[in-house]
Structure formats: C-alpha cells, structure tokens
Amino acid sequence: MDDDELMTIGRFARLTGLSVGTLRHYDEVGLLSPASVDPATGYRRYRMAQAERARQIRMLRWDDLPIEEIRQVIDDQTGATTRQVLARHQRRLQRQQDLLTARIGDTIRFLQEGITMPKVLAGCRPIQLKIAVDDLDAAIAFYVKAFDFRYDVARRTQEADYSAFLFGTYGQDDFFLVHLIAGQERMDQPGTSTFGLLTEDIDTYHARAIDAGATEAVAPHDAEGMPRCSAIRDPSGNWIWLYQA
C-alpha cells in the first residue's frame, strides 16, 4: 500500500492494533487525527504513514503513560523532553511498585495473623515527638547504633513513604513516634530539643551513645529523689536524658 493511500478506520485499527473506539478518542483529544474526514458521513480515513505514530502511542499507553505526556514524547523533536517525561514516569511506576509490594506484605500478614483493628482509646495521650537534625541519614544511623531504635515507614501516600522511629503498635498504649526533621521545608520545623529515654542499663547506653557520635553533657550519676541519670547531646545538639529503669 502507498503511504498516501487512504484507508478506513477499521482497516487502520487492524493494522495498528488500536480499537476503533480508541482511534476516535485519540482524534477527539488531538493525539492522532485522521488524514481526512468525510464532511457528509463523518467517516475517518487514515494514511499508512500514520501507522508508526499510532504504534508508538499504543506502546506508550501499554506502559500507562498519560495521554498528555504521550503527546509531549511523540511531538518531541530533540529527545530532551522525552528523556524527562520517561524518567518521571519511571519514578512514578517505581512508586506504584513500592506501594503494591507494601500491600502484598499487608495481605500476607493478614493471612498469617488475622485482621486486628486498633482499639479506640479514651481521652488524649502524647504519641509523637519531632527532633530537628542537621543530617537525616547520619541522625538515623546514630539513633539506631546508640539506642537500637527501629526506623520504619509510618505513612504511605501515592507520592512517597514517610518514615520515623516507631515504638509499639498503633492504637495501643505503647505506640509512639519520633520524627527526625531536616531542612527548613516543614512549617513545624523545631529547634533543638530535650527529651528523655528510660533504659535498663544507663551506663551501657550512655557509653554506646558516646561511641555512636554523641557528646557527654552530664555523666551518669545518682540524683536525689529520682532514678540514676545522665545526659548526652546528639550530633545535631539535641539533649537526651537517660534514666535508669
């Protein structure tokens, strides 16, 4: 067939692997318009030369690229826009994969342990602490090394995971979150903080914190009217009091 020869929409659909309904939709949104439209009957006709564009669109839609982004890729003359669009789509697909993996994990846990709902607690209790740090990765490593804190996903959205140090189970009396905040992008960015930790061996954890990069503020000592205690400053300057359990 000559590239300039017109063909019916049905034949073009069979040639490109796109349905007639899809071709009509692509015409309506201006993504793939027919070579001609009969003004009397409204019949659409296509040229062979349009088949390559149609197949490219089909491949990109198979990979779930949105129509507007397909338009940017198909009409890109330099390739620069294509690389940006596809790199952004790769990140989006990776995020979808991460969410799917998390949901599969939840389903497996439900199968093994059953579906348990957190109990409703009466009244109010503190469940969250936010700490300003200079270097997020370094701060995570410090608290894990010094105190065996568990850093895990506390919230999932379509765009990203948000992690924190998790304690206990959500909805239970032992639940608590410690968030590390780095940078100035958050409206509730705290300054340096002071908080306390209860430990079964204050001298050991005091030494571990120093070894992990903390500086000593108050050496372990016996205090009148309260448990044995000490204080250190983390690498970002936050004070951490340690109390003997």
Rank of each mutant, 00 (worst) to 15 (best):
T82C: 13
A13W: 06
Y205P: 11
L6D: 03
Y143E: 02
D203E: 13
G79A: 04
Q96L: 12
E69W: 11
A146E: 04
G123R: 08
R95M: 10
L86T: 02
V133K: 15
E68Q: 13
L111R: 10
H25N: 02
T116K: 15
A141V: 05
C229P: 05
I181P: 08
L129T: 08
E5K: 07
D174I: 03
I140V: 08
F147D: 07
T22F: 02
F167Y: 08
E69Q: 14
D75W: 15
R24D: 00
R24N: 04
C229I: 06
G30Q: 03
A214Y: 14
L180H: 04
I74K: 02
A209E: 01
A217G: 13
D134I: 04
A214G: 13
Q244K: 15
T16I: 03
Y162K: 12
Y43C: 09
I104M: 12
H25E: 00
L198F: 00
I131W: 03
L18T: 04
D3G: 10
R47K: 06
I140Y: 14
S19G: 13
F147C: 06
P126D: 12
M187C: 13
P235H: 11
D98L: 03
Q94D: 00
D27M: 07
V73M: 08
A13S: 07
F149C: 11
D98K: 03
T107I: 14
R92V: 07
M48N: 09
R53M: 11
I104W: 08
R55M: 15
D4G: 00
A154N: 10
I74L: 13
I104P: 07
Q189E: 05
L242A: 10
L23I: 01
G10F: 00
G123W: 09
R53D: 11
L93Q: 03
S236R: 09
A122L: 10
Q50D: 11
T78E: 02
D27N: 00
R71A: 14
F175N: 12
A141W: 01
M117F: 00
R45F: 03
D106V: 03
H89D: 06
W62T: 15
S163Q: 06
P126L: 07
F195R: 15
E224R: 14
I74V: 15
G213K: 10
D173I: 10
L111C: 09
L18H: 08
F176K: 08
E68T: 03
Q96Y: 01
T101G: 14
G105P: 10
R58P: 02
D38L: 07
P34Q: 02
A132L: 14
L136E: 14
Y170P: 14
R88W: 09
D148I: 04
T22G: 02
D75F: 15
L197N: 04
A49Y: 06
W62F: 15
D222H: 15
T192G: 05
A160V: 13
I232W: 06
T204Q: 10
G10Q: 07
T81G: 09
R14K: 10
A223P: 14
G237Y: 10
R228V: 01
R233A: 12
L15C: 07
D2G: 13
T16A: 01
T192Y: 08
R44W: 00
V37P: 04
M59H: 15
P126H: 14
G30R: 05
